[in-house]
Write a protein that binds this DNA or RNA. Structure first.
Length: 845
RNA sequence: GCGGGCGUGGUGGAACGGUAGACACAAGCGACUUAAAAUCGCUAGGGCUUUGCCCGUGCGGGUUCGACUCCCGCCGCCCGCACCA
């Protein structure tokens, strides 16, 4: 009977489903919650999904075999713009498009044989999920976690919606191509910045997270300690008698040469009202654009207002107030003092506009003159931990580190009363209002007499109207004839519904908690949440290192505060694994005009198209539809079976690195599974082989350790070794089947269908999915004799075979008698003889 | 600019400070076959004066009996953040 995955995989999937093998239940076993980041229902599954979910499945099945009660759910991150875009382009309704995609993708996912508890499946656009998310929104609003305020947003005037920063490309909307405008809008915000310090310091406790992700989050939160103080202004308009300034280098205060304001600073706006040249300068700054590239290459522009401020340490010292395009309104206070001697940017500015450059400190031992000379052509910016000599110091010692000087300066300011030490964060509040239809409605109404009023819980869910069209740009909720009409829950009068919907990151910030009790009529059922949380192992792409994971960490805290999660779940993901991408070569030809034309891998054989045209091969890159370097998992499963796709995904490349999909690699995976199948078929009369059972037990130890360490590629290599050992062994009959059963158990997390077949062919009892994980017998892990390499002066020259527990002095005697050693020593005695038992011998001649 | 990661055969990659290149892909040779495919077996870092020796983990130093691994200094590539005061 040949290996035929097409029939056997479906059969085993049915058997597992009928046995309810993967239904998560609360029982006396220890629990284990493994979760992969849930997919967006774009239409089809791709190889990235296969890799992600295969890895999660290995962990889930492994833990299940080890005796854990495993929760391994699946759902759909179903709200979002692509559904609306599809409705605009092809007609139809986002809801229909989304649910049709979910059905397709579910059908594509199920044949992979994942050990998922499908009874817990939900989509974030389900009425029920919307309902509970809105209930939670009201709780969080009540708990002071949500606020409504005015903010600058990226506004696409064609699509008539707010764009996220990532959706603004070269100053234009990513979809419409229209120039994005800065617009002030009243928006709903989660007060994540209240948790800046907490979210930062708690990173230290996340020992199961990659260091890289923790660092990225720390950078994003961006904590800095500095001094906030006031410049008294001279002749400024009323209400601007002082300007608040923030600096992380207050120790350079005596090197100040100017004050600079952001073009968005209120004082600048005030001046623009009466002075056209100020307004013109603001316009000029805006033209440069908002992209990182533009900002990076933009020249430093300044405008001298003619106003001055008084230096806080010297009432007779006046500094000019400039407007500078590099000062950002949304960091610090939107105002700085320029310290050109010790700041790259300020130095460039001062040089351009002829402002003074005065050193505050110089290299150790320098005089004031030497230090001024040092900074004349280029700024002197040493690490804050380095000791320098202060030549214009005003607090602390003359020779001190920058850190000590900053502390001393803050202390000085606080003692003298002109400023105070302040900790600032880069992290902004999380704006969640989207002028979009296909999202979770924000459950509030606007009442003329009561203002903004939360919807009453008993009126939830606030569901989206179904009778909408997308033939004109903008949010269909705004122009719906009746949907906006609501009753004020407070006064009972007429009110208008909020038409903004929530950012879809809100949906994905708590789905992991909902999986613990997906049918509950509250956001979570506390008994279930208490039992299943936290997620023991979370697996997903590095692209979510900041936003999704940071929002989830905040949301878990908000859910703790509102009673929806236990205190212990405030860090919801105990361990995080970020897997690499699936890549493929790109095949390209050019059309008559020299434009690139891409070709699908299945249309290319040996570097040529079917008509013989040679293609240009571009090195492997992330699979993308536009470059056509995609392989459809459905085709692979159809031709080779799910186990082949799974096995290949786990082979060769370490999980955290990118893996290149190659046709040859997929075929090799298939060949290996076929070979294992044949190994199980060829059995005869009982012949024992003690070496084989040793190999099998070594494989148990190695594979177990590899899976625990997320080194699936090593686990695969060890299974190749075991297969080779079985093939070479003369063992047959029962002894051979014993080894095959171990093989089946070790392979089961990775290629579960093949493992079931192997298990039953080798006379395993029941299904291998129910067999407990094998334990390696320590007695079988070590051979009685070991081969000891002999190094002479650190180079391997010979080896001896000795009993595993041979005493050192006997080994030494054997080594000294070895003919290679004798030849190298040429009669002399060794300077040193190092014996590392069981490892190596080194003779130093 | 700041922060982090990575450099090992033709390729993907192994290697508690202890035999560098496990395992696999691609390649070559052989067996089986009329032939091919499939399968099985063998070879395989480079070099040489081949019982054996020399050189080899991006480059240059260092620590050590012993370094892919640890330390210092370079070079290259990748990722994240960035006029952040």
């Amino acid at each position: 009977m040949p290996y035929d995955p097409s029939s056997s995989e479906a059969r085993w999937q049915k058997a597992w489903a009928e046995a309810g093998s993967f239904t998560a239940i609360r029982d006396e076993r220890p629990k284990y919650y493994v979760l992969e980041m849930f997919p967006y229902p774009s239409g089809r599954i791709h190889m990235g999904h296969v890799r992600n979910y295969t890895m999660g499945d290995v962990v889930a099945r492994f833990k299940r075999a080890q005796g854990f009660s495993v929760l391994h759910p699946m759902g759909w991150d179903a709200f979002g713009m692509p559904a609306e875009n599809a409705a605009m382009e092809q007609g139809g309704h986002p809801r229909d498009w989304t649910y049709a995609n979910i059905a397709t993708m579910r059908d594509q996912l199920k044949p992979l044989g994942l050990s998922i508890d499908w009874s817990r499946e939900f989509a974030t656009c389900d009425d029920d999920y919307v309902h509970q998310q809105q209930a939670m929104f009201l709780d969080m609003l009540d708990a002071g976690l949500i606020t409504r305020k005015s903010a600058q947003v990226n506004w696409d005037p064609v699509d008539m919606t707010v764009l996220a920063n990532e959706q603004v490309i070269d100053g234009k909307g990513w979809r419409s191509g229209a120039t994005v405008e800065r617009k002030e809008l009243t928006q709903w915000f989660f007060r994540i910045s209240d948790y800046s310090d907490e979210l930062l310091s708690a990173l230290d406790g996340l020992s199961g997270w990659p260091e890289k992700v923790r660092l990225m989050q720390a950078n994003w939160i961006g904590k800095s300690r500095g001094l906030q103080f006031r410049f008294a202004t001279v002749d400024a308009p009323e209400g601007f008698e002082a300007i608040e300034v923030y600096t992380t280098r207050p120790d350079t205060l005596m090197g100040a040469s100017f004050a600079a304001l952001s073009p968005d600073h209120p004082l600048v706006k005030k001046l623009a009202e009466t002075r056209p040249e100020v307004a013109a300068f603001i316009e000029e700054c805006k033209r440069i654009g908002t992209t990182e590239e533009a900002i990076e290459t933009a020249p430093k522009l300044g405008f001298d207002t003619g106003l001055t401020v008084t230096h806080p340490l010297d009432p007779n010292w006046q500094l000019p107030i400039w407007v500078a395009n590099f000062v950002l309104m949304d960091y610090g206070t939107g105002a700085i003092f320029g310290s050109p001697a010790h700041d790259e940017r300020d130095h460039e500015f001062a040089t351009k506009y002829g402002l003074p450059i005065r050193a505050t400190f110089g290299q150790p031992g320098m005089t004031l003159e030497q230090a001024d000379e040092l900074v004349a052509a280029a700024p002197f910016v040493p690490l804050k931990s380095e000791t320098v000599t202060y030549v214009r110091g005003f607090a602390g010692d003359a020779d001190q580190t920058g850190e000590a000087a900053v502390d001393a300066a803050i202390a000085h300011a606080e003692a003298q009363g002109y400023g105070e030490g302040v900790t600032k964060f880069r992290l902004r509040d999380w704006g969640i209002s989207r002028q979009r239809y296909w999202g979770c409605p924000i459950p509030v109404v606007h009442c003329d007499s009561c203002g903004t009023v939360p919807e009453a819980k008993e009126n939830l869910p606030v569901l989206l109207p179904q009778d909408v069209s997308f033939d004109v740009p903008g949010n269909p909720l705004d122009r719906h004839p009746t949907w906006r009409q609501a009753t004020c829950p407070k006064c009972g009068g007429a009110a208008r519904r909020e038409t903004d919907t929530m950012d879809t990151f809100v949906d994905s910030s708590w789905y992991y908690a909902r999986f613990t009790s997906p049918g509950a009529d509250t956001p979570t059922n506390r008994a279930d949440a208490d039992y299943w949380m936290n997620v023991d192992q979370y697996i997903g792409g590095i692209e979510h290192a900041i936003l999704h994971l940071l929002y989830s960490r905040f949301f878990a805290r908000a859910m703790v505060k509102t009673g929806h999660l236990p205190e212990a779940a405030k860090e919801p993901f105990d361990a995080l694994f970020t897997q690499g991408m699936v890549t493929h070569e790109i095949y390209m030809t050019r059309d008559a005009k020299g434009r690139p034309v891409y070709h699908l891998p299945e249309d290319v054989t040996d570097g040529r198209l079917a008509d013989g045209t040679e293609v240009e091969i571009i090195p492997s890159a992330k699979m993308s539809k536009s470059k056509k370097n995609v392989v459809d998992p459905v085709n692979i499963v159809d031709s080779f079976g799910a186990d082949t796709a799974r096995w290949f995904m786990l082979s060769d490349s370490p999980p955290e690195r990118d893996v290149e999909w190659t046709a040859a690699g997929a075929e090799a995976a298939y060949k290996f599974l076929t070979r294992v199948w044949r190994l199980a078929e060829e059995t005869g009369a009982d012949i024992d082989d003690p070496a084989l059972i040793r190999s099998a037990h070594r494989a148990i130890a190695d594979v177990t350790r590899s899976i625990e360490g997320f080194a699936f590629n090593k686990a695969v290599a060890k299974l190749y070794e075991l297969a080779n050992a079985i093939a070479k062994s003369k063992a047959d009959g029962a002894p051979r089947k014993a080894a095959l059963r171990i093989m089946a158990q070790l392979m089961a997390p990775m290629v579960p269908h093949m493992a079931e077949d192997l298990w039953s062919m080798a006379d395993g009892q029941g299904m291998v999915v129910d067999a407990p994980w094998p334990k390696a017998d320590p007695a079988l892990l070590e051979d009685d004799t070991v081969t000891l390499p002999i190094q002479i002066n650190g180079k391997r020259r010979a080896e001896i075979s000795v009993a595993k527990d041979m005493p050192k002095d006997q080994i030494e005697a054997l080594v000294m008698a070895d003919e290679t050693v004798i030849r190298f020593l040429e009669g002399a005695s060794p300077k040193k003889l190092i014996v590392v038992p069981g490892r190596i011998v080194n003779v130093v001649a």
